[in-house]
Nucleic acid binder design. Structure first.
Length: 748
DNA sequence: TCTTAAAGGGTTTTT
DNA sequence: CCCTTTAAGA
């Protein structure tokens, strides 16, 4: 089955290694994923029970893809491939009671966490302006990443005289943690932490899990944090058939607690470890590799490593300087269009990478103007929307009535005439009676001083939740439908002409589609908590579609593990990469992580790599003159400066402004870039070309929803809306045509 | 109680 | 620039 003809000797060695610890140091593009997949297949061929194999990847998408590929190689091999967080969530569900949780615990996302912290800060009379929930949350997360409990933090604060924020954190952390437990909830860090606790305090359980997962594979090991390190170690004690893969030069998550040391000390952790180096690169041209190599060589805290390839020399890497962000974005869009129209490339060949999400906006606008189809990595964005959070809060409350954050979110949403003061009374009474908020709401008659109307509403609310709980074993979508029906949640927007309201309806519908898909995929195992878990743990690139036929936009972090024939790496500027925050610390390690991040970006490219920077950039509403990134001087590349003088002035462009958009691609003399004196992008979008851009029957692509057909175009010229039916959605969605990310697509 | 308006504050990267 | 939180009015 798994022939070895297509593997190098080193790859073969890693694939063929059977028992005992294995470290695979894999440079970028060295076929690491293929090696892991093949190795899993090989283990199964050798008679290892697939159940005994646990593979940990960095994103859900990577996990799904790896699972698929293993199944292709070994059809009967159903291996558990998962992210750390998902693995821990599943494990914790089955042993929740050991750590004092219920099996139906909620997973708090950052918003929930902030909300809870806000509450705690208020209760402790801590000034939330000076000590923002955000800052405190970060500090607590840091502590948790370092396996520090609330008691540990308090102790270390006693030992050393901490600063003000630490003093606050040492008070807040224990209360925050207690409230989490009272809500039967965990935050992201807790998922790992509880499992660490579970494993370290229950030797017999640890042993049985170690035995159950005899073969553990961890990808991107350089990005594991202390908690993850402990979990892996605990599962590889009695059966140390642990295979970790990674590349110290691609360690880019130090800021969230990852320890590059974990991979560096693997050999001393496991003295019998076999080490395999994959240094041959199959991805990039020599030019690209040379660029990457010259950059990463500047890192001092680093093990020397070779990057070699038999690939062609390729075109030189280019650094292009543009006037400003809009110029940069427009030229990239135009450049891509030219290549696609010349038949040299497909849209999906392009990746556009940036250091900070904020840079995506200008690029998106440009891609819209130039009718370039694109998708953007944005896992969480959808689930952050108020209407989605509200809807999910109902489901969370049904699943876990102790969830106070969910309760507080929806108790008066939609409006039930339950005001702040009533809620305060309820919360107070519940606190003193030691019951959940839902239970308190069901016992309003016992609460003194509650207005009649509010009391009645609360009672009804409690009954609603109780009724829905009766049906908790139904398919998730049925439960969702019931919630929407019984709460009348959608009524507030139905029949509204407002585009925003229609969008909200569409989003909720989208959530229903997700629920239906979950029901279908999991069949009998489709539990409500499982669904909530799935949506809580989406990761950044999960929404990307390899076969979407469009350009892909994402951060450098999200790009790890991916590759593109052509990469545009934008914003190579001082304070952007390296980011100003890394520059401020004077900590060389942070600067080196920035360098690694750029290294990751560069090594995503297969054939062509364009690095771009601007002379000035709009930032926080201000136009700032930029300074080139210090990393640029470390690269061996060709400069191709297209500065102001090479381009027509904005007045030249102004006269051409109302021209048809399609001319832009053909007419090279009309620079699309312009200075801020001219009209802002939102005005520009209202050119006749754009307004008439959609017509009924047209095929379009949306970065989130996929391919759809335009059903209707309506509304006054300036606020024209377009209604689109998508393949995967039940109902049509409506967009404002001037601002929507819809791309016309030819045929499909 | 709820809606609307103004001001203020914060921004890396993500599970 | 964008989002959130807060203040004033209906």
């Amino acid at each position: 089955m798994s022939s070895s003809a297509d593997l190098t000797p080193n790859q073969m060695q890693a694939v063929d290694h059977f028992r005992g610890p294995l470290l695979v140091l894999a440079g970028p593009g060295s076929g690491k994923t293929r090696v892991i997949t093949r190795r899993i297949a090989r283990l199964i061929e050798r008679g290892v029970n697939p159940r005994e194999i646990l593979a940990i990847t960095f994103t859900n998408k990577a996990a799904d893809e790896m699972g698929e590929r293993v199944k292709e190689l070994v059809p009967q091999g159903r291996v558990w491939v998962s992210t750390f967080h998902r693995f821990c969530a599943r494990l914790l569900r089955s042993r929740a009671e050991i750590v004092g949780l219920g099996a139906n615990f909620s997973i708090f996302d950052t918003t929930d966490q902030r909300q809870l912290l806000r509450e705690v800060l208020r209760d402790l009379n801590i000034d939330a302006v000076h000590f923002s929930p955000n800052k405190v949350a970060h500090r607590i997360s840091n502590a948790k990443n370092n396996l520090q409990s609330a008691a540990d933090v308090a102790r270390s604060f006693d030992d050393a005289v901490g600063n003000h924020l630490d003093a606050v954190v040492s008070r807040v952390y224990p209360v925050y943690q207690r409230r989490l437990m009272e809500s039967n909830a965990v935050d992201f860090d807790d998922l790992l932490l509880h499992v660490v606790k579970l494993l370290s305090e229950n030797p017999e359980l640890r042993h049985s899990l170690d035995e159950r997962y005899r073969y553990v594979l961890v990808d991107e090991y350089q990005d594991t944090n202390p908690a993850q390190y402990r979990i892996v170690a605990a599962l590889s004690q009695d059966f140390p058939n642990l295979c970790v893969t990674g590349d110290p030069d691609q360690s880019i998550y130090g800021w969230r607690g990852a320890r590059i040391d974990n991979i560096l000390r693997f050999e001393s952790d496991y003295p019998s470890a076999v080490v395999v180096r994959l240094e041959e690169n199959f991805r990039s041209t020599q030019q690209i590799l040379k660029t990457a190599d010259s950059l990463i060589a500047h890192n001092v805290l680093r093990k020397q490593k070779r990057l070699v390839t038999d690939n062609p020399d390729g075109e030189p890497v280019e650094l292009v300087v543009y006037r400003d962000g809009e110029h940069e974005a427009d030229e990239i869009a135009r450049d891509m269009r030219r290549q696609v129209e010349a038949g040299e490339r497909a849209w999906s060949d392009f990746g556009i990478l940036y250091r900070v999400n904020a840079l995506s906006r200008e690029i998106e606008f440009a891609l819209l103007r130039h009718r370039v189809p694109y998708q953007i990595a944005s896992g969480v964005e959808f689930y952050e929307r108020a209407e989605i959070k509200d809807t999910l809060a109902y489901l969370k409350l049904i699943s876990n009535p102790a969830d106070r954050i969910a309760f507080l979110r929806v108790v008066n949403t939609p409006r039930r005439g339950i005001g702040k003061t009533s809620i305060a009374k309820l919360v107070d009474w519940a606190e003193r009676s030691g019951v959940s908020l839902v239970e308190a709401a069901g016992r309003v008659s016992e609460i003194p001083g509650l207005p009649k109307k509010a009391g009645a509403s609360l009672k009804k609310f409690a009954e609603l939740i109780a009724d829905c709980r009766q049906a908790i074993d139904e398919p998730v979508d049925s439960q969702l439908a019931r919630v929407l029906e019984r709460t009348g949640y959608l009524k507030q927007w139905q029949g509204s002409d407002s585009e925003q309201d229609q969008q909200r309806l569409a989003n909720v519908q989208e959530l229903r589609t997700a629920a239906q898909q979950f029901d279908d995929a999991r069949a009998d195992e489709a539990t409500l908590e499982g669904f909530l878990e799935t949506v809580s743990l989406v990761s950044s690139g999960d929404n990307l579609d390899n076969s979407a036929g469009c350009v892909t936009l994402m951060t450098l972090h999200a790009a790890k593990g991916l590759e593109f024939p052509v990469v545009y790496l934008v914003g190579l500027e001082h304070n952007l990469i390296p980011h100003e925050r890394a520059l401020r610390t004077e900590d060389n390690r942070e600067l080196e992580e920035e360098r690694r991040l750029l290294f990751v970006g560069i090594t995503r490219a297969q054939d062509r790599l364009f690095l771009t920077q601007t002379q000035s950039r709009n930032f926080r509403g201000r136009r700032l003159t930029t300074i080139p990134s210090e990393f640029v001087s470390e690269l061996k590349i060709k400069w191709s400066e297209r500065t102001e003088s090479d381009w027509p002035t904005d007045t030249d462009f102004e006269s051409n402004d109302s021209g048809d958009i399609d001319d832009w691609g053909a007419d090279n003399s009309s620079a699309p870039s312009r200075l801020r004196r001219t009209k802002p992008p939102s005005d520009r979008a209202e050119t006749p070309a754009k307004r008439s851009g959609f017509s009924a029957g047209m095929l379009v692509r949306h970065p989130q929803y996929g391919i759809g057909t335009v059903i209707r175009v309506s509304g006054p010229a300036r606020k024209q809306t377009v209604t689109v039916g998508f393949e995967d959605a039940q109902e049509a969605k409506t967009f404002v045509s001037d601002h929507c990310p819809l791309q016309p697509v030819g045929t499909r």
